[in-house]
């Protein structure tokens, strides 16, 4: 029995006046939150769709242009380039964070000395400000001083010369993906660990009696038990990574994922808000499409 049914028993049986009062009280308490979310989240989203049909002027009147903005966007090769970049970025960061998160969660699910300390340390990438850690990454990959080139070029001879991986357009996406995994794996790890700890230990004991080894235990017990949890975490991460701006923009200017493409269109050079709004809208439609397919195929709702 949850607390709701207890409440209903104790209060609602006393009559409809109380029920009515309860209703008013509930709405009264939620009202401030509701007003804020409707006026500052839902209304702006609708307004964004509205804006996408105009040539927007920050001062003065907007000029109605119909679907011209949308047409301009979807016929622009740079937009599709950006869509491709986004897909690659989202795919690899999401799989990477989940995989690293899963491995770390499996490790951390055991007891060992200093576990508390290790736990707090590995959450640091997730809580530190993006702006404070990007420059450290820049330094690590700095062609002259960085430790990465010191190891990869001087020690392992993987490169023919010391190159700037973050500045060069071909390689910057790999660093951005690695950075995304590093920054967000603690989130996946935390969620997966909570799932692992909820698994009934009796299942493992039974499997051991049946002669299951380590891998088989993972394959036949752990994995099925956390399948839907993993599915939801992947979905959340995919949504969030798709919307990521700062983690890419502050690290490198060369990886133009969709939010950055939108930002550059709308807020730099000749500020073209109407086109920006159109991209943001198309981006949102793409995201909704992905979510619907994913929920049906993977989560089987």
């Amino acid at each position: 029995m949850n607390s709701d049914s207890v409440i209903s028993k104790s209060i609602f049986t006393r009559g409809s006046i109380l029920e009515d009062r309860e209703k008013k009280f509930g709405w009264f308490l939620i009202l401030p939150s509701l007003i804020i979310i409707v006026s500052l989240v839902l209304y702006p989203i609708v307004y964004n769709i509205f804006l996408s049909f105009f040539e927007v002027k920050v001062t003065g009147n907007n000029e109605f242009t119909g679907i011209q903005n949308h047409l301009n966007i979807i016929t622009d090769p740079a937009f599709w380039q950006s869509v491709t970049t986004s897909i690659v970025y989202v795919l690899f960061t999401t799989l990477g964070t989940t995989l690293v998160g899963l491995c770390v969660a499996l490790l951390m699910n055991r007891k060992f000395p200093l576990r508390g300390l290790v736990r707090s340390l590995i959450l640091l990438p997730y809580v530190a400000p993006v702006i404070a850690v990007v420059y450290s990454w820049q330094f690590i990959f700095d062609p002259v001083n960085g430790i990465f080139m010191h190891i990869a070029y001087d020690k392992l001879h993987l490169f023919t010369e010391r190159i700037n991986l973050i500045r060069s357009p071909d390689t910057s996406i790999y660093v951005a993906i690695l950075f995304g995994i590093w920054k967000n794996f603690p989130f996946s790890y935390l969620m997966i660990l909570a799932g692992l700890q909820a698994i009934d230990t009796g299942l493992y004991e039974a499997a051991e009696i049946d002669g299951c080894k380590g891998w088989q235990k993972f394959r036949y017990i752990t994995f099925p038990e956390i399948y839907f949890l993993l599915g939801s975490i992947i979905l959340l991460r995919a949504i969030w990574n798709f919307n990521k701006f700062e983690e890419v923009f502050l690290l490198t200017q060369n990886v133009k994922v969709l939010p950055i493409y939108t930002y550059l269109k709308a807020f730099t050079g000749i500020m073209d808000i109407g086109h920006g709004a159109a991209i943001a809208m198309i981006q949102f439609i793409l995201l909704i499409g992905f979510i619907l397919i994913y929920v049906k195929r993977v989560l089987k709702w």
Binding site: D4, I7, S8, I11, F12, E22, K23, G26, W27, I30, S33, L34, I37, V41, L42, P44, I45, Y47, N48, L51, L236, I239, F242, N243, K244, F245, P259, T262, Y263, A266, I273, G276, A277, A280, Q283, F284, L287, I291
Partner: peptide, 26 residues
């Protein structure tokens, strides 16, 4: 307990899906 609180709860969840860039322009 009142009617509609489930919808409110879910619409708060919906806010998770909106990226900052979508809110920034409007």
């Amino acid at each position: 307990r009142y009617k509609g609180r489930g919808i409110i709860q879910r619409s708060v969840l919906l806010v998770y899906m909106f990226g900052p860039i979508l809110l920034l322009i409007p």
